Simulated scan of single mutants.
Amino acid sequence: MKTSIDNNARVSDIMTCALSRLLKDGENVFHGVSSHMPMVAIALAKATHGPNIVHLNIPGGVNPKSIKDAEYSSAGQELFKGSEAVLPLSEVFDLSMRGKLDVAFLSGVQFDVSGNVNASVIGDYNKPKVRLPGGAGSAVLIPTAKKAIIWRTKHDKRTFVEKVDFVTTRGNLWKIVTPLCVFEFKNGSLKLDSIHPTSSLEEVIENTEFKVVYDEVKYTPMPSEEELKALKRIDPYDLRSK
């Protein structure tokens, strides 16, 4: 898979910009732990097309002043200090269950064509090959947020499977952004929404276990010069590529 194209945009840049463009001005948006890419995408959206987006996170800081020095977990005190307000994680869950959380950025380990998410086990639940972290917040937020956006930095047949080994959660999946493409959950199943310019339809099909269905072949727009300049300013330490 090619890692860059003519304007020097990398896969991580393409993914971050794709995530950013999914956000609308004025939305309440949450990201979890180990979520540098969504964190940067939120900051990018606020700096470009969505200045009134409300950034919510694990430490409880609302609209942190800067994400430049965020710790490796994207859940450190840097996202709390200097924030405009405080909203503890328990209140984020309450916000979502009351229908007031517009977007939740979450992830998982396995995804199937029916929109099920597995973050619990690989193999049989009682005798698993691998025991995973579990649902945590995603079991609450995916079913209750208005739009759940999944991001995953790995795209292969072990990740995008015909049927997950265990259903940790299901619900309002909207988009899944991977290093190869964007999937959309539509009419009860995952469909190919767009292919990144650094990939191809053949590569997406080769790395997806379920049948790749699409209405038309579309390509994810390249990052604009404005977006790339904003990324350098917002994320000088390239947290989005972690």
Rank of each mutant, 00 (worst) to 15 (best):
K2E: 12
K2I: 13
S4E: 14
I5M: 12
N7H: 11
N7M: 10
N8T: 12
R10W: 06
R10M: 13
R10F: 11
M15C: 05
M15H: 08
M15I: 10
S20F: 06
R21M: 03
E27F: 00
E27I: 03
N28D: 06
F30L: 03
S34T: 15
S35G: 12
M37R: 08
P38R: 03
L44W: 01
K46I: 08
K46A: 07
A47E: 02
A47V: 00
I53T: 11
N57A: 08
G60A: 05
V62P: 04
N63Q: 09
K65L: 15
A85M: 10
P88D: 08
V92T: 10
D94R: 15
D102G: 01
D102P: 01
V109K: 14
F111A: 09
G115A: 03
I122C: 09
I122P: 01
I122W: 07
D124K: 15
K129Q: 14
V130F: 13
T144G: 02
A145Q: 01
K147F: 07
A148F: 02
I149Q: 00
R152Q: 14
R152F: 15
R152C: 15
K154V: 15
K157N: 13
T159K: 11
E162D: 10
K163Y: 01
T169N: 02
T169S: 10
T169E: 06
N172D: 07
L173R: 01
L173D: 01
K175H: 11
V177E: 00
P179G: 03
L180G: 02
L180R: 10
V182H: 07
F183L: 10
F183N: 07
F185Q: 06
F185N: 02
K186C: 04
K186V: 05
G188N: 07
I195E: 00
H196Y: 11
T198G: 04
E202F: 07
E203L: 12
E203P: 06
E206H: 04
N207V: 04
D215R: 02
V217H: 10
Y219N: 09
E225Q: 12
K229H: 12
A230V: 11
K232Q: 12
R233Q: 13
Y237P: 01
R240T: 06
